[in-house]
Amino acid sequence: MRIELIQPFINAADAVLAETLQCSTRIGDVSMEEEAYRRKGVASMVTIKGDIEGRIIFDIDTPTAAKVASYLAGSPMPESVEIARETVCELANMVIGSAVTTLNDQGFRFKINPPVVHVAELGEKSSEDQEALVMCFDTDSGNIFMNIAMRYTGRRRADNRPV
């Protein structure tokens, strides 16, 4: 896993969570996942295609989702699976949008698809050229998990320019 590919996502998650939840975030457990992805709560997945390909999964439990949803909506929200789904998709949208902005400014071109709710208990196994990094963000509202599996497929547009 190339650190320059995932760093924008980590920075974006840190900034978006801090801004949205009005608190500082701490990065808790970080691990490389070799086995198939196992869903922890309600998850949303965003796929990326282009110079960089892969997927990012956000995963959150229902009580944490209700707290995050209350910040997003600006008023208290009840605990429900539907609200958790909406919350995790909106968080994914904001974090990935911000990260993509950074990567695009670095010269990478790709297309992101809107977040979809990840309903399967297990995801695909990581492959040799697409390991998954799993990290946990500790926030005052609870833990938010981000699982990134990404790889280069091409070179940046700037790298392809004739010298």
């Binding site: 949803a69 997003l72 909506a73 909406e86 919350t87 909106e90």
Partner: peptide
């Protein structure tokens, strides 16, 4: 906005 939360937040 396709997100209900985003709409609520901006509306507020």
């Amino acid at each position: 906005d396709d997100s209900v939360f985003a709409r609520k937040n901006v509306a507020k």
